[in-house]
Write a protein that binds this DNA or RNA. Structure first.
Lengths: 199, 199
DNA sequence: TTATTAAGATGCATGAATGTATCTTGACTT
DNA sequence: AAGTCAAGATACATTCATGCATCTTAATAA
């Protein structure tokens, strides 16, 4: 029995509806009318705020990121924090997958940008969560700075993202610990970077 | 100056046109009319053979895979073969990225399948190229079978695919060698799987 | 209370893509 | 050489989403 929504209230509700539509139907299935219906309003209200499907979608994504910041507390132990990071990320798998459907249809054609571009644009300003974890571990002396050279430092994020993109579902706990214990940690733990190891 | 195409000839030309459209415009921008125009024919000819955009797209992908098999010769050295594998794969980055645009729009909604599902369906029968390389290396005694446990064995493929999906472009040579020398080989080379390494 | 502003409902024209039916014409078969 | 079948061209109706214009009504401010 609530009255007529206005301003910021309304806008938040619209973006929430857009987000739900995006996750349920993907970017291709996202329509202005669909969002309007779900929000219990009509298209003109949407049209007054956003021009494109793309604008609306990105605004919706921004709102979700603002609502649920990815924060991993300092536990004094790298392994613990990495697992928590992956667990936290897993709860958002559906949303992440939905975001990537942006690049299917027209979006990446029109803007000629890549998922990487969007990712950096959305993360602009805030340092990456994963990077923060690793820096803390370096300060604690758990790992060596030099073992975090470019392809390695982002490895866990890559593994997670790839899994989500390929399966549209979060990685199970067993897989996450395997990534940490059998891939990432062995690479960064102090095994005195043996360059030109053999041959 | 060529006459009217028929049967298999025509079909191959149609699939070739579809593939080009798919790589240039992505799945979202793929239209029956666009393919017909590019193939120099009209929509009814397409409609007689495939019902969906999806059917057409998958048939086009199949034809490309058949035309360009991913074959890496036995060079007696794992590292050489891995680099050749990644180099070969890189030449197809554009196509691979295009294939994944399938899962943006409607396809994955309608079929409720995942990119993983499609991948396994397309690879059905033939063993994976990467897996073949690794098995050969195990036989040669270059690496230990036990170091190829599940999350590690497919690691290079994961890294490659993730890069292509995120940037829509092939990984540069420097990045490929970094994957091999600083991530994959260190993990599989005989460092006597130290389980419960420390703590 | 009154005035202003935007929410919300409705209607209409448009454009893109598709499905389908029809018809002509070229190529292959016997 | 005649007949058959599919290629290729064209046309029409349909569907879906969008853009825009209009009008009523509710909420907020003066």
């Amino acid at each position: 029995m609530k009255g007529r929504r206005r301003g910021a209230d309304l806008e938040a509700a619209l973006l929430e509806a857009a987000w739900t539509e995006l996750t349920e139907r993907g970017y291709g299935g996202l329509t202005m009318e669909g969002v309007a219906n779900r929000a219990g309003t009509s298209r003109p209200v949407l049209a007054r705020r956003w021009n494109d499907k793309a604008e609306l979608a990105i605004a919706a994504i921004r709102q979700q990121m603002a609502k649920h910041p990815m924060a991993v507390a300092d536990h004094g132990d790298l392994r613990t924090e990495l697992l928590e990071y992956l667990e936290l990320a897993s709860t958002r798998a559906k949303g992440i997958a939905a975001v990537f459907t942006l690049f299917s249809s027209e979006y990446f054609q029109d803007t000629s940008s890549t998922p990487q571009d969007l990712r950096t644009a959305l993360l602009a300003g805030g340092k990456e969560t994963l990077r923060a974890l690793l820096d803390r571990a370096v300060e604690r002396g758990e790992i060596l700075e030099q073992n975090l050279a470019p392809p390695v430092d982002t490895l866990l994020g890559v593994l997670f993202r790839h899994h989500v993109l390929m399966t549209f579902s979060p990685p199970p706990e067993a897989l996450r610990t395997a990534w940490v214990d059998r891939i990432f940690l062995p690479l960064v733990k102090n095994h005195k970077e043996s360059r030109n190891s053999d041959e």
